[in-house]
Design a protein around this nucleic acid. Structure first.
Lengths: 167, 167
DNA sequence: GAAAGATTGTTGTTGACGACAACAATTGCC
DNA sequence: GGCAATTGTTGTCGTCAACAACAATCTTTC
């Protein structure tokens, strides 16, 4: 049913395709037709927009969305292992290694060798990391207001409710 | 206001952070706190889920979301230039080159040298591409039903309405 | 009508990111 | 004590966005 708009022209599409009947130099009025109504497409475009705004809004402190999520989880749950953080955020532990390397180099996070399980590291924010995170959160809240301005306050709330199952 | 859940513990967070007070071997009940209420995080997680389902549902025909969007746009607007397609879908023309290379190798799309503008290529589906696309659309509709089953029919509809501005 | 500037497709590089595989150190199981 | 599983780490591979450079071609401008 997404193809309804094409149903007629599909019977003999090469009639127009033969030569340059419609090369269309105007790129803005291209019909999406079947693409509209696809949740994945809309979500992808929205996600791109929202990440770009986040990166831009937190640009002055050079924090990307993934880094922010890591800092937030560690800040809320000090002493967590890398495995636990990775599992919670749905990122691979291999990936988390590099993330923590850079965050540790910036003195925002420290890895402390756990005494209960000497394989694992207990993750903590540094004092500097604590104060930095509060600033990041202030900027993130500003970003959140941009989202509200873009799609509306109620729509944002409803969106969060719809997607709450994905935590 | 997204940080409200942390507002109390933020005053003296290092009280708990001091040593291994809460190493927490259970990874599933980790509090996200401040992360909940961030639209970007929810959208990212949802987008990952929805893409994985799309890839899996269209796995038998080996078509990924971006490829599907390209085929759909070309199918609905035969004769479009690469530049127009790229601009419409928000992907770079450099990226589109590789996408079209693979689609052309699979005989789904053909580039025809435009006679009006000899720099550009007019994009068309092959006959094989036309019939293939109808099958892809059927599978995509099935994927869309998975989304409905996941978040609910009305929620999906509302989601599309909220995000319609991102086309 | 020719020079200057813009556009189209192409190639290449960079960096973020997810998926996977291998490894050493350590723990837990039996 | 020995064997399987887990944790952090390193490395590779493939996807994808962002840029920069380039040749061919159009468009503008004088």
């Amino acid at each position: 049913m997404t193809a309804t708009a094409r149903a007629d022209s599909r019977q003999s599409p090469r009639k127009r395709a033969g030569n340059g009947a419609a090369p269309r130099d105007v790129a803005d009025d291209v019909g999406l037709d079947a693409l509209v109504g696809h949740a994945g497409y809309a979500v992808r475009r929205f996600q791109i927009w929202i990440f770009q705004d986040f990166i831009k809004t937190l640009g002055e402190v050079d924090i990307r969305p993934t880094q922010y999520s890591v800092l937030t989880v560690i800040g809320a749950n000090p002493g967590l292992s890398q495995m636990a953080v990775a599992k919670r955020l749905g990122i691979e532990r291999a990936r988390l290694v590099h993330l923590l390397d850079s965050l540790e180099k910036r003195k925002l996070v420290k890895r402390i060798k756990s005494k209960e399980d000497r394989r694992s590291h207990a993750l903590h924010l540094t004092a500097q990391g604590e104060t930095a995170l509060t600033k990041f959160k202030r900027l993130a809240a500003e970003h959140e207001r941009h989202v509200e301005a873009k799609i509306g306050k109620e729509n944002r709330a409803h969106l969060l409710r719809i997607l709450s199952g994905f935590t």
